[in-house]
Amino acid sequence: MADAPLLEVRSLVKQFGGRRVVDDVSFTLARGETLGLVGESGSGKSTTARCVLRMLEADGGSVLFDGEDVLALRREPLRRLRRRMQVVFQDPHGSLNRRSSVEQILTAPLAAHGLGDRAARAARVAELLELVGLGGGYAQRRPRELSGGQAQRVAIARALALEPEFVVLDEAVSALDVSVRAQVLNLLTQLQRELGLTYLFISHDLAIVRYMAHQVAVMRHGRVVEAQPRTRLFEQPRHEYTRSLMDAIPVADPDLEQARILAARE
């Protein structure tokens, strides 16, 4: 079964008020790999992920996680499945309960599944903080005492608390500064390698998707317009929309950038 994909999404549909926000979306995701889901805001990429995670109820299609029909699960079996799939959001501070300490934030998932006793949980918190490159000294801090990068590391640690196999990274680095973003991206790749994680990496930024993802699916208006392995997508984008996304990425080269901006005025 080593070749069976970990996640298989087939013809997923989600409507809001009669409008198809996710329209017939299909993809598969192999174990230990990263699928980049790229598109502009409103393209339906986050909604797709939320349907997969059962944070929203899909209106059609199917989601198979390790062979299990995710959309059919109810109550306890669904809660058990949640241990295996986790999520990290864009806004580092928004995704942490500002009334809790880092320790409380990290033990909450363990408590929700009745894992470990007091001592075991404290040990796990220290281990998790170490894993994401924060020292144990952070356990008693409150979210507002953390920088954006530190808060996002805490959010990553929380996602890893239950030892999931699959993590959705929903614009997880988009709100971070350049240097912090680079650190967090490096951390994510390192964690993937060490823990054998499978990522669904959602971003509006093709440059970052190119760095992170093995497979890329480009979404527009709720549909996947192009899906290819990374190398092929960036060498020969087939869809015009993909090409326009690639052209829009700013390059840290004044000559090139300013020439493009002047050209656009004609």
Binding site: R181, F234, M246, V251
Partner: peptide, 25 residues
């Protein structure tokens, strides 16, 4: 120099860590 190195664009080499600035601002 470090900021320029940490920027993500389509020329970023794959399969190796992005150069970063050690520590926190």
């Amino acid at each position: 120099e470090a900021l320029l190195g940490a920027a993500c664009d389509l020329t970023l080499p794959l399969e190796r860590p992005i150069p970063t600035i050690a520590g926190q601002p």
